[in-house]
């Protein structure tokens, strides 16, 4: 059982959780992720580690309510628990002194980009962050990013915050000015593909963090396989970050749509009775707490 220590909304449909997971808090590095399962009937989904406090034994994750599990998760509060959290998984971000590093993130991707931006800064890079979202009310962690960046640009599709336009428009300005040595892009697949199309012809080293569908997260199932340089790579153990110029984004997008119908069905089921499902979830977790206590008693005897 992994207790939720704190929970607060960051933006519309996006919520931040601090979860007690001492082993993970101690070991995690920027760029890594956890896999969570809410309860016995839950699916396993990967979520990025946005931050951690090893002394308090907590990890911070940011959840955007887009599927059944993330919607149900977002209904939880401090004092609730979730059944399973495993990690840290994946390879940490590559942290080197590149020169000028541009960190491009879209919406909830900012939660993942933030710790890497912080480490890039610590490693002596000039860090320029470009934070994008469809609209102002979907922007997250803007202040945190500003704090660790030399320059920060906010881009929104509708112009409600920062400049109106796409993150790639701002990135293009920087690239054209010859200012960029390294790019990390984290966000929706079309955004990452647009970044790759922009920087690859210029031979600017660019990494993207891929959000493929996973089950175990340890390389055992191969469900997260992506085509990188025409060879099969597992995002969970070989990634999640890959060289953007080598990634086949079409295959990534196609595979991420594999369960579209089932996802719709699950969401409809949840939306038919969200309070009932939340109640059921809490009952299941309470049952587990009791079972865990019973096991402790057995061991003490």
């Amino acid at each position: 059982m992994f207790p939720i220590i704190a929970a607060r909304p960051l933006a519309r449909g996006i919520k931040l959780f601090e979860i007690k997971a001492p082993r993970i808090a101690k070991k995690q590095k920027p760029g890594q992720f956890v896999i969570v399962r809410l309860d016995d009937s839950g699916e396993r989904i990967p979520l990025t580690i946005a931050d951690a406090n090893p002394d308090a034994g907590t990890v911070t994750i940011v959840v955007q309510a887009i599927g059944k599990t993330t919607m149900l998760f977002s209904m939880l509060e401090a004092g609730d628990s979730i059944l399973d959290v495993v990690g840290p998984l994946g390879k940490p971000s590559e942290i080197e002194k590149f020169g000028t590093a541009v960190v491009v993130s879209g919406s909830v991707g900012t939660a993942m980009a933030y710790p890497t931006a912080r480490e890039l800064k610590r490693a002596g890079n000039k860090v320029i962050s470009i934070v994008g979202a469809r609209s102002k009310d979907l922007l997250v962690l803007e202040d945190a990013v500003r704090e660790v960046s030399d320059e920060t640009y906010v881009m929104t599709d509708d112009g409600t915050a920062g400049q109106k336009g796409l993150v790639t428009e701002k990135l293009k300005e920087l690239v054209d000015a010859g200012l960029v040595d390294y790019v990390l892009a984290v966000g929706p697949v079309p955004m990452m593909r647009a970044v790759a199309n922009l920087t690859s012809p210029q031979h600017i080293k660019t990494m993207v963090s891929l959000n493929s569908i996973m089950v175990d997260g340890t390389g055992m199932c191969g469900g997260c396989r992506v085509l990188v340089n025409n060879s099969s790579q597992f995002a969970c153990v070989d990634g999640p970050e890959f060289d953007a110029s080598q990634v086949n984004f079409d295959v990534l997008m196609q595979r991420n749509n594999m369960y579209r119908e089932q996802e719709k069905q699950s969401i409809e089921r949840l939306q038919a009775d969200p309070e009932g499902q939340l109640k059921q979830l809490r009952e299941n977790l309470h049952h587990h707490e009791c079972a865990a206590l019973a096991t402790e008693v057995v061991h003490e005897q």
Binding site: S41, G42, E43, R44, K68, T69, V215, D216, M220, C221, M258, Y259, Q262, E263, Q265, S266, R269
Partner: peptide, 19 residues
Amino acid sequence: TRVNLMRAYRFPEFDEPLY
């Protein structure tokens, strides 16, 4: 793993989907 560990054969009662 989807069918056994995750009980996908009991979708949607269990959340893990299966093609």
